[in-house]
Write a protein that binds this DNA or RNA. Structure first.
Lengths: 317, 317
DNA sequence: CTTGATTATGCTCATTCTTAGTATAATTAA
DNA sequence: TTAATTATACTAAGAATGAGCATAATCAAG
């Protein structure tokens, strides 16, 4: 145990951002180079903290304030040397939510639906047919190809836990684990590039656009974090316009979760938790009965500490 | 937006670990230098990944395998220059759980109850008197001292959310926020060192041992993560011996959560989830009726993907 | 102006999950 | 033999959840 803070070799820090916005019921993520990369930036000495570094750099580029920023993960990839060929790169990734998006339709910083990268994650219209028809059969082949019987069983169990049967037992939070499983099974192009550059694999990769480096993995991490977070913290308001109808809010949450929700119960929950208040106005932009407009009650975030415990704490003291 | 991974100034990586063990119903954390520091180590080039770096370094030092390792947080503290006086330090902290502990009673790597650092967090015997008697009055003074009325109200609300009234509305997961609030209010010695080195503050710091640098903050982050995690993932088994009684398990969880639990309901939950299986043996180490011994069903971790949703997903598909 | 389609919203109901017990069993220490 | 201690089974009230029916308010066609 080295008492004084130990000093290691020098490394270079790279910041990566998963920037999320929401338009027309699509969850969007900011990409570069024809969707092949997430925005990356330097961490320069002038920034007092990492978070302020991310904010400064993103806001300068997008001209829009970041509503919410959260650190995702830090890792050091041995396979990715710094471009100066010398130092190792440590990348720190962040999730950022923003309310408006810049330059819709622009080519280089471009907003894309994240379901282009993870088409199997969109279950808003029911079970994604990709899972049952394409993914599960291929994963099944992979499981059978394992050497030992024990390993076959283990693979099958992991497949079952993470993908269910294609209809039931789908847990939208497991997006990262699912991507990792596909990666391990060699069913995403990223694997091929890395392992079989010389000898391309025989299996057809699963649909879904790849990214360079590990960026699709970082994106999966961001989506997973966001999907988990909305269940106990109303961060989705950071993505909404100042006023909205309850159906718009529901569609937004569904876009993030990738799952349909029960309309009446959704309203009941939002209402019970006192998350919104009516503005008094209503809108007739929809076809049917005009919907009341609501705004988010910002105070609530301070008021509540929310937490869904699973352990039998005695008395709600 | 800089397309190619941008390169920033060189920095030095420091790894910090919150290593947790459990003995005699006390949650222990490994410390150095008379409890003033968490173990820190270098991240050297030979390690393929950060996680393997942490494992290697910790296991070499403690001679014990780490059951579970999880990244906590990364940050760059402008106030802490590298000891070579040149490069900036970026510290990456990890949480590690270990089943046995080395050298009980040793002086330098020393295991200490984490409640020595956060005495107000121990509510196992009911509401901690420290909160109502010492902390809340001092925080109240601090709130009143705010300049603007709006700021006073905001402070009071934060106090209320994070500390409740000293008896009710205590959320054990908010340990980090509570520490940060005390820090902001100048009620922990760490603040004094930093801000008022010349002119010591008039207020008496709240009981609880401080640490150097930001180590007590890192510890709070680790405890918070662990307290939150045990609610949806049975990581506490990493801290248990191979065989245990249900009461021992309950005491372990209570030590982590800092809250008492309802015995019968605890058992029912553990049982329902199929987390344990009887070994067939029982123990008479306790005074009363002998308890059955159980072991953890490791398979269950694979089988279950657990998740407590708060949103009204339609049908449990 | 009537009808059907569409969206909004109020309300009910069965089921499950929690919380907080009571009751009883099996031990040891005195 | 009794009191204290620990383990375990069982129950009942209340809250939260998931599903659906019913009704209201609007627009687009005919």
């Amino acid at each position: 145990m080295t008492p004084p803070p130990a000093i290691s070799d020098a490394v270079t820090i790279e910041l990566n951002a998963v920037l999320v916005a929401l338009t027309g019921n699509q969850p969007l993520v900011l990409t570069l180079e024809d969707g092949a990369l997430l925005p990356s930036g330097p961490f320069a000495t002038e920034h007092p903290t990492l978070q302020s570094g991310v904010r400064a750099w993103v806001e300068r580029q997008t001209q829009h304030p970041l509503g919410y920023v959260e650190q995702l993960y830090t890792f050091a990839d041995r396979n990715r040397p710094a471009s100066d060929g010398q130092r190792r790169v440590v990348s720190i990734s962040y999730l950022g939510l923003t309310r408006e998006r810049l330059s819709a339709g622009a080519r280089d910083p471009e907003w894309r639906s994240w379901y282009r990268y993870f088409p199997w994650e969109d279950w808003r219209a029911g079970p994604s047919p990709l899972v049952a028809q394409t993914i599960l059969p291929q994963l099944s082949t992979w499981a059978d190809a394992a050497g030992a019987v024990a390993q076959q069983r283990e693979r099958r169990q992991r497949i079952d836990v993470n993908f269910g049967d294609g209809v039931e037992n789908w847990n939208e939070d497991l997006i990262l684990q699912r991507y990792e499983l596909l990666y391990e099974a060699g069913l995403v192009p990223e694997t091929l590039q890395e392992r079989n550059r010389a000898a391309p694999s025989a299996v057809e990769p699963v649909p879904g656009m790849p990214m360079r480096h590990d960026h699709r993995r970082i994106l999966a991490t961001g989506i997973a974090r966001l999907r988990a977070k909305i269940k106990y913290r109303p961060v989705f308001f950071e993505l909404m316009p100042p006023e909205f109808t309850l159906l718009q809010l529901q569609r937004a949450v569904e876009a993030l979760a990738g799952r349909p929700m029960h309309k009446q119960n959704f309203r009941r929950l939002i209402d019970q938790q006192g998350l919104v208040e009516p503005t008094g106005a209503s809108t007739s932009e929809t076809r049917g009965r005009p919907a009341k407009l609501f705004r988010f009650r910002r105070e609530i975030v301070l008021e509540r500490s929310v937490a869904g415990t699973k352990l039998p704490l005695s008395r709600p003291i």
